[in-house]
Write a protein that binds this DNA or RNA. Structure first.
Lengths: 199, 199, 199, 199
DNA sequence: TATGAATGAGGGTTCATTCAT
DNA sequence: CATGAATGAACCCTCATTCAT
């Protein structure tokens, strides 16, 4: 990478990092592009060289952060001896929930802005070329399972929607119960979803 | 009701109806208070006599519309002969989903802005004094059931979160599948949640 | 006084007292007529039955409060045995300064809004019929003096302007020195003004 | 100075000049930022690039105008042969009063908005780098005097407060007497203040 | 590629005043 | 006399976007 190119990457990364820090601390609507460029130490015009607008940078951040969350969980999964598909899913969900419990501003950011569309694109085609593709990992997990599942995409869809929307309320507001109390119900439901889809 | 009071109600209702119409057609962020009052035919200051700001009117609308959705479903449930708790829940969910399929802008509005906090307040303490209290109806349904359920609030919470978040994507974008294809999976999962909670 | 009339006086007094309390605590520009009527417990329209606008009630308050300050000082002067005109003036000034030191919000209110025009009208024609006329007292003081003074109105004008403007800065901000350090210089100057005017 | 920089200075100066013209003709409270930018021929946002709000530009104007008044008087003082400290002060005060008599709107603007705090900062640290520092000139005058003075800052404070507050009423309203009739009394008092402070 | 001064439409909000009750 | 709902002009300020440098 030439010096100029690394300089470019440095500016872009500064913008991404600063935007994430501001989005999570102040919220998207209260973060202006002025705020971002000022804290990132670049000129206003520069922002528009890399991103279309605030929502462009937001989507890229969500994709990246959501992928990181999955890959980190998967990385730790590989250190275990778990072989059963259902147990793997529970492990991943639990790992992700634990991360979100430790990082509530990340949870807030992701939940408030997540849509299945962005999410799916994050899973299937990561922005950062260094990010792996989580969807492929999921397919692998399915294939190495003893069982086959009906509509596996619907299955993972329902699990993700259920987890992400119930986490939001439970972790951030302990409503209707705190996360630790919700977990048994949630995991029981996830197991039901998987079992019901088993062919 | 005196002439003055009915005049007040008329103004407030005009604001609520106009706001709902604009929120659903243009989205909240692109709707300004100027837009609302202009279309409602009242002065700008009048808005602030009845609502604190744009988010106040939004929350009141969500509460009201969500409650209407439930009550309409419940009204039709009472016309049936269904006695089983599980079947009642499925009926209600199906009824609500059908309404949302017919009214996508309502779905978009509710889903984008729903949080369990607002939702619960909508269920337990409706804004409009004419609205019934859905939460009481739910309690009644539970009591007239043959079975008892563990943590019924958590149970309904998970069902609502699962339905509302998966409907959004399925109805509006047919992602990952269209609503009609999602329904069997969804209802199977709901039944699982209920069965698992049965004591 | 009829019941109706006392009711009127009660409302007017409530408005005056509330306005004073708000003007001194929040400042005039940040106090709205809405604030005043709300805290006073009367309707908005009622305000306009008694006062033309915010500045009308302000002027009446200043007159009243400034007169009270003078009369209170004069009342205490009469308890002393002071006979010398110069000493009387110093006593009055000192008394007033001490009151203002104890009541900084009153000082702030009066200083920020005082003009010789309002002031003079306060001294010569008090709003409240119960208030005495300070200017007459001043004339009496002059007449009972052994000396005569050139342009006594100019003399008292300069003294009042000097005292009121230097008090503001000294009491509220201790600038350029605190009031207690300023007093010797100030009183020395007042004595000079009086001596120089002596015929 | 680059073209861009001179362009900036031009815009800022246009705002300052326009604001001064409007503040003196209409008064501060009746001048809106919209008025200023419109008359200055710049966009609204531009105002906020240079000034925080209306009160920021006001303070900067007062500092600048007050400094100009002093420096102009001092400039003319240097053309004379006056050596005595007391005479210098009288000359300066007289010069300033004469300027204010010719420019009543300036007097009105300065008097209504002056506070010792703003004033002192104007004297000690002028906004415009071209403005000299009047306080240093005062110190020089003191040092070249034959006498020494007790608390010279208090002395100048009292003189300034006395002059500024009595000028306001005398020049603008001829109350209690017109400026020309007030002058002898005023100057006599100033001489007394100086003499009394002489060590 | 990078800058940052300039823009100006549009946002939310306040509040003195009126007038039908 | 008293009310308070309604008004709507006017306010300050933000900020995404552009473009000459």
């Amino acid at each position: 990478m030439s010096k100029l190119e690394s300089n470019k990457k440095q500016k872009k990364d500064a913008l991404l990092n600063t935007a994430f820090s501001l989005f999570t601390s102040k919220g998207i609507h209260k973060t202006s592009i002025s705020d971002i460029v000022e804290k990132a130490g670049v000129a206003k015009g520069t922002f528009y060289l890399y991103f279309k607008d605030k929502y462009d940078i937001r989507n890229k951040l969500i994709s990246h952060k959501a992928t990181q969350l999955f890959l980190s969980a998967n990385h730790d999964l590989l250190q275990t001896e778990i072989v059963d598909f259902e147990e793997k899913v529970i492990f991943l969900v639990d790992h992700i929930i634990n991360q979100l419990q430790k990082n509530k501003s990340l949870l807030n950011f992701i939940s408030k802005n997540l849509s299945w569309g962005i999410f799916k694109s994050a899973l299937t085609s990561p922005v950062d070329p260094d990010d792996l593709n989580f969807y492929d990992i999921y397919i692998d997990m399915l294939e190495s399972s003893h069982y086959q599942y009906e509509d596996p995409e619907v299955m993972i869809f329902m699990i993700i929607e259920l987890v992400s929307s119930s986490c939001y309320s439970a972790i951030l507001y302990s409503e209707p119960v705190c996360m630790d109390k919700l977990k048994p119900h949630l995991y029981r439901t996830i197991r039901s979803i998987i079992n019901a889809a088993r062919l």
